[in-house]
Write a protein that binds this DNA or RNA. Structure first.
Lengths: 138, 138
DNA sequence: CCCTATAATAGGAATAATTCTTAATACGAA
DNA sequence: TTCGTATTAAGAATTATTCCTATTATAGGG
């Protein structure tokens, strides 16, 4: 007897989750789409978005917003923060001591009930820094 | 003799800056647009966006990205962070000790050159918390 | 104060990322 | 295998923002 929202384990969903895991460096929906299509060429972008949404809801992956307008997806669901390259847009992990929510002064946070603290760090990745250095020498 | 990029001080630009200052609570482009149109009804949304971009470039206001897809604008250009209500989307200020970039371990930040640390806090604002409490009692 | 060059504007089209719609497909319980 | 329905493909729709172009109006110089 089927009841409620049955979650089918489709090929598309499996390949999408595997792509997020394998791409590693916080891919965007389009990057995941391109990877998935190497295995399942008829997969549509809507399907990728829908399944990414489901996987986020299920807590299997995390959605990460950076400075740009695209959403990045992260297979590491543990508590950690991100650093984004302002040149190439790449997103990498940062492992810092988490901010202790309970010790935050209510006045400091405009009397909000704090749920989550996200640290978004902007910087230049080693590859882009090297490239910029090369260009400067010319 | 006019040379280079002359920055004209137009009525639209003045009213847009004033609106950002007066609205206070980190308005979006559309909220600013609605306010500006009360004074200058023929102002277009493009003009609002263009001037907000110029004002950001000039360092007169700051662009703030939250969890939603809209950009918020902040007349307070000093170093501070933001807390966003997950219910109504409102953005408020948070004044915490800034993270000291220079003491960050290169390994911690994947060897990036760190430019800026942005703390984005998610929570529930006092008004929405009160509203939710009321609904729970019913 | 008026002229004139040109920066800035209004209005709407274009773009980019994401979400929605609908008929067709295929998963999986029996 | 069969069948009910969750999921898909394809493309339209939506949302926020940026771009385009003819027109307007600011500000420096006469």
């Amino acid at each position: 007897m089927l009841e409620g929202q049955l979650r089918r384990n489709t090929r598309q969903k499996r390949v999408i989750l595997r792509s997020v895991e394998q791409l590693g460096c916080h891919p965007t929906a389009v990057q995941i789409y391109n990877t998935v299509r190497k295995v399942l060429p008829r997969t549509s972008l809507s399907t990728v978005y829908r399944n990414l949404g489901i996987l986020v809801d299920q807590g299997k992956i995390r959605a990460v917003k950076g400075a740009g307008s695209e959403i990045h997806y992260d297979h590491n669901t543990g508590a950690h923060n991100h650093i984004e390259c302002t040149v190439c847009g790449r997103v990498c992990d940062v492992h810092m001591d988490p901010v202790d929510i309970d010790t935050m002064n209510p006045e400091t946070v405009s009397n909000f009930i704090v749920m989550e603290v996200r640290m978004n760090i902007l910087g230049i990745c080693p590859e882009c820094a090297e490239q910029l250095e090369k260009e400067k020498l010319q």
